[in-house]
């Protein structure tokens, strides 16, 4: 098991992962926003691509707490800078905490393919569930966004997140073989 304290190198790599993740997230979400008013579509489209990047970051750092840091910072960026939508702050933090919690209970640390797949899946599931529930609290029409749509979208995002985690772990394997990532 890796030492649990985060080193400067770990934090620097989490920062770069977040920057990369943000670029991927912005491009996919902006593309979908311009095409559809269906709110859940944004989460569904970005889930897969974002999870690939997150899985690479998790595999390199490997420590429990990485997803929470990613969640907090992604929440601060999305809540206060762009798209500057404050409810994204608690959503991202909850997603990160849930992923870290489940991985800690099941696997102890990040590194194995299963741990990456599970963490990415859980994170997307929780995030989608929370972010799609918030509009209903602010009076969004239940005709457009019903609880059934929320559950189906969350499950779909969870599945796509897990698939992204799987692709990410395959990329990590290749990068390890090439010597770009070392344990």
């Amino acid at each position: 098991m890796k030492e649990s304290r985060f080193t400067t190198r770990d934090l620097a790599f989490i920062g770069m992962t977040l920057a990369l993740m943000y670029i991927v997230q912005t491009i996919t979400i902006l593309g979908v926003s311009a095409l559809t008013p269906f709110d859940a579509a944004k989460s569904i489209v970005s889930a897969f691509f974002v999870s690939i990047v997150i899985a690479i970051g998790l595999a390199k750092v490997g420590k429990i707490g990485t997803f929470t840091i990613i969640g907090i910072i992604n929440g601060i960026i999305c809540g206060f800078i762009l798209p500057a939508f404050l409810p994204l702050l608690p959503t991202a933090i909850l997603g990160g905490l849930a992923a870290d919690g489940v991985t800690k209970m099941l696997y102890g640390e990040y590194g194995s393919r299963n741990s990456l797949v599970t963490a990415c899946g859980v994170n997307q599931l929780v995030m989608t569930m929370v972010i799609l529930t918030i509009p209903l609290l602010f009076g969004f029409s239940t005709m457009i966004l019903s609880s059934a749509i929320i559950i189906v979208s969350a499950l779909l995002c969870g599945g796509l997140g897990a698939a992204g985690g799987l692709v990410g772990s395959k990329i990590v394997d290749e990068l390890r073989k090439a010597g770009a990532i070392t344990d």
Binding site: F6, M16, I73
Partner: peptide
């Protein structure tokens, strides 16, 4: 500090990585 340091790096490198891409 682990959060603020990582946040500084992420924010600083978003435009840089976009240019790299």
């Amino acid at each position: 500090t682990s959060v603020t340091f990582t946040l500084s790096i992420a924010i600083r490198y978003i435009p840089t990585l976009a240019r790299e891409a």
